[in-house]
Design a protein around this nucleic acid. Structure first.
Length: 404
RNA sequence: CGGGGUGUAGUAUAAUGGUAGUACGCUUGCUUUGGGAGCAUGUAGCCUGAGUUCGAUUCUCAGCACCCCGACCA
């Protein structure tokens, strides 16, 4: 893509209300725009990052046999009333203009909707197990949105649900999902602790959260850096300084960002929607379920928090909006144009800074945007291309082939 | 939802009871091209409403918006 075709511009100054690094850098770079407190637009650059992240998530969910679908953002009152969640205070309710009562909630989770859908398709143990997920905008009436895109009233989430005939089968899938989640975060360049956590208001079970250590995190966790054992403070059986119950390492207290969570649902939703199946012995039994969430937009914010320096963002290659940032310092621009076209031909995601502006501006902008490889063409480099990795000082002279 | 704070140009900011200045951006022209270039030029602003006052961007109150602390947080 030619940089001149982006309608966004970078800024030297962050908005005065941007406190966290992710908000300041993502807004300065033109990745996101804040429309309201906790409500963001994903601008062309930011949307490319969101797509990279969600594609990683899709690959890993597909790999454990889940299938993608899409459910309504308008969730009918009947669904939430069935589980007594119509009144949950994080919800938004909506009605049509001129209508007397709220008929829908803006979806903040979809257990009810999917369970009801599934109840029309599942009748035998032969239909189980299965799992489905969606990537969708969710709405939560956060009393206090904060930290840029880390906590908003509207956010992009992957929510997955699984359906099983037996507890053993559920547990087997639950463990697979843990591994899939670990893969997602690792591929996104994050070091996430799989953390024992509380189940919240609607399940008494122990659940698991995936926590990335960061000062802007809202959760307090106790971790063993040695064997990676971790507990959320809410359910902690250890404290800082204790011996790790698993490996005799020393427990540390950390603040962390929750980037994902998984939890057993038991038969709560199956019971509410009469989702049963006929077992091998002919008995009707309720389906056992699990739920698995990843905040895609929060993940983007977390990556920005972890991967930046004074000059700007330093995207891991796996989620970067482009692979190569091509800068052109020549007068004619023909060499850069040739390189740009050659890279495009090879399928390299390249952003070409074709703007009429100073070299310093282009260099500073490249640092801010944080694209992994910077390729400079100038009179100095002749027919070679100067290649530099973002976040490293090492500069090499190469050719197009080195960028593919 | 409780407490506190802040609203000045596109952005970041300054001053002021007598209608506002700077920087960046943007326009135009010339000169420039390895760390957000130089000179010139033009552009653009006091959140909304009420009150006090001869006069309010400034003081008071209310509203709204945003931020921070706390509570809450599938």
């Amino acid at each position: 893509m030619k940089q001149s075709s982006l309608f966004t511009k970078t800024s030297k100054t962050a908005p005065s209300d941007a406190v966290s690094a992710n908000a300041a850098l993502l807004e300065r770079g033109g990745f996101v725009y804040k429309n309201s407190a906790g409500v963001y637009s994903y601008l062309p650059l930011g949307w490319r990052v969101i797509r990279k992240i969600s594609d990683i998530v899709r690959e890993e969910m597909d790999a454990i046999g889940s299938v993608e679908m899409l459910m309504p953002a308008l969730v009918d009152k009947k669904y939430l009333e069935a589980t007594d969640r119509w009144g949950v205070d994080v919800g938004y309710r909506v009605r049509g203009i001129g209508e007397a009562v709220d008929a829908f909630a803006l979806g903040w989770t979809h257990e009810e909707v999917l369970t009801e859908i599934v109840s029309h398709h599942i009748s035998s143990y032969r239909d189980l197990p299965f799992s489905a997920y969606q990537v969708q905008t969710k709405f939560r009436n956060e009393a206090r949105a904060k930290s840029g895109i880390l906590r908003g009233k509207e956010f992009i989430m992957k929510d997955m649900y699984s359906f099983h005939a037996t507890q053993e089968d559920f547990e087997s899938f639950y463990e697979k999902s843990k591994q899939a989640y670990a893969n997602v975060f690792k591929r996104c360049g994050l070091d996430a602790y799989c953390t024992r956590a509380a189940g919240g208001a609607f399940t008494g079970n122990i659940t698991h959260e995936f926590q990335v250590v960061s000062p802007v995190g809202e959760d307090v966790i106790y971790v063993c850096p040695k064997c990676r054992y971790a507990e959320n403070k809410e359910v902690a059986t250890v404290k800082a300084g204790d011996k790790c119950p698993k490996c005799m390492g020393v427990i540390e207290e950390k603040t962390a960002i929750e980037v994902g969570n998984i939890f057993p649902l038991g038969t709560k939703y199956a019971d509410a929607f009469n989702l049963t199946f006929t077992a091998e012995d002919g008995a009707k039994k309720p389906v056992i379920m699990g739920s698995y969430g990843i905040g895609i937009s929060r993940l983007m914010g977390t990556i920005a928090e972890i991967h930046h320096d004074e000059a700007g963002l330093v995207w891991p290659a796996s989620v970067a909006p482009f692979a190569v940032h091509l800068l052109d310092f020549t007068k004619s621009g023909t060499a850069a144009k040739d390189a740009y076209e050659a890279l495009q031909k090879q399928g390299v995601a390249v952003l070409w800074d074709d703007r009429q502006t100073s070299a310093g501006d282009k260099l500073a902008t490249a640092d801010l945007l944080g694209i992994p490889l910077r390729a400079v063409i100038s009179e100095k480099t002749g027919d070679k291309i100067e290649i530099k990795k973002r976040g490293s000082d090492e500069v090499t002279l190469g050719t197009i082939v080195d960028l593919i």
